[in-house]
Amino acid sequence: MSTYSLSDGLASGAPRTSRVALLASWIRESGVGVLASIAWIAFGLSCLWWQDVGDWSRTHSLGIAAFIIAAIALFGTVGADYLGSAGQALHKRAPWLVALGAFLTVWEVATAKFAWLPLPFFPPPQAIIEVYTDDLPKLLDSVFASIKLQLGGYVIGATIGFLTGVSIGWSRAVGYWVHPVLRFIGPLPATAWLPIAFFTFPSSWSASTFLIALATGFPVTVLTWSGVASVSNAYYDVARTLGAKPSFLVLKVAIPAALPHVFVGLFMGLGASFAVLVVAEMIGVKAGLGWYLQWAQGWAAYANMYAALIVMSLLCSGAITLLFAIRDRLLIWQKGTVKW
């Protein structure tokens, strides 16, 4: 009886269920992509539907751009099978596209259209786009100035920190002299040196480089040192019985074994040096994104501040990503032994 009714139900319902299942699977596959497209259409409409409460020149272009993104999302989703890896990349990021489109819509409506958020302090998206199109040369100059300062200070600080760390980890005599100095000066925030540095150094650029190097150097030193100090004696024993000289023990045993620690120091140093960079640029250096922020604040140009903040966060996260990539390359041997 039960068998009969089951097969009967299957037979009569089969065509309908398969169509519904097909639709369900299509929605599962492409629903988010279509939703992303809808969200960006909503953003485009929110730009063009109402009048702006203020005077912004890029509203129309922004609306058009939103429609273009919506179209790309839609066609990318529908034609995902023909787009290969690009289609897959879009599929993976579709939920973020939905969230971003929704956020921009709300932002647009809350600022440019109805001014629910107090206006000069919360500029609409088109005001920020306007900064990127109209104030680009100045912004780019600031970006390059920041990168130059940051890179110089970081490389100097990381190099000195690494060499110091290896020396005090390896040699008791060096440790005797350097360790107390490190203990005394290291924990001091590098920004505390700002006033002195800007008076004693010949230029604000050299003063800032010194401060950034200082902020980088301390964590790199300490972690390199602890890395070298924690290398197992068994490694040294093995190398010594195989005929290794002291230089080999340092370069081919101690340093490679300590490298995972060194990278922790490099990451900490990078974070610390960003803070010093911005403060130094705000106070003493007459260039860079920190200075741009300060300058924009002076003119109450809030859109410029947000624009500079976005660029700054892209730069900082880009630097971290780059350091990760270098680490992944150098420490490929760790991949199977620790969780990344």
Partner: peptide, 20 residues
């Protein structure tokens, strides 16, 4: 002092993990 004419194989292989 140690010399490569006398080589030790320890209880733990103590291979260097960063080397192939």
């Amino acid at each position: 002092r140690p010399h490569p004419s006398r080589v030790v194989v320890f209880q733990d292989p103590t291979l260097f993990p960063w080397r192939s």
